[in-house]
Amino acid sequence: MNLRIEDLSHTYPGAEARQVLCIDAWALKDGDQILLRGVSGSGKTTLFNIVSGLLHPTTGAVYYDDRPLYGLAEAARDRYRAQHIGYIFQNHNLIGALTALENVMMPLAFARTLTPAAQRKRAIELLEALELSDYIHTLPKRMSAGQRLRVAVARALANNPRVLLADEPTAALDEHSGEVVIDLLQSTCADSRAILIVASHDPALISRFHQRVDLHAGQLHEAQWA
């Protein structure tokens, strides 16, 4: 799997229409693990939404294995997202009416690659790996922010994504929990040679990533670790 962005720009429609993103070219390949840094409002979430196929960019294109993501019909893009892209949202975005297990099973059900029994088994394994064995049937409102994040991580990993996007995954966590989560993301992606992009301004993470990209004034500034 390789991910390529070309001539991408995004401007949200509205009164003071300001260009949020302006990226000439960005190419990632299997196994890349990137730390995406940028101040608040620099466009990290916007970029993730575009890369995950949720937000049609104003101009430019996103390619997965040289196939333009936005060349797909919307339903096919939804399906592609379910099967290949894991997205851990900044605010977790768990469904309140569903238990941890049901939240994790959601992308499995939409991807339709496993039988319902296998979906359930996979979801339980993931929750156990994230030390949530006791919270499998718990609703999100009865969990701490860190536990909720771990459910979101499990959900993002459910379909063995080729690309994993994590938006501020450690923001709500104490140091130990943050490490557990980052460890899991990094080791999982290393094992499956998936692309991992973590958006964060947590300084503790800097030492853990060899590839680092700064998002500033809508542009990416690559900083290769020596």
């Binding site: 995950s52 949720l54 919307e74 339903a75 939804d78 399906r79 997202r81 379910a82 099967q83 997205y87 949202f89 975005n93 768990l94 469904i95 309140g96 009416a97 959601m106 992308p107 939409f110 991807a111 959900r155 379909n159």
Partner: peptide, 16 residues
């Protein structure tokens, strides 16, 4: 609407 958006964001289609 937010729950629906979440379903969409994890791969649910409009039809779903």
């Amino acid at each position: 609407e937010r729950d629906i958006a979440i379903m969409r964001s994890v791969g649910g289609s409009r039809v779903n």
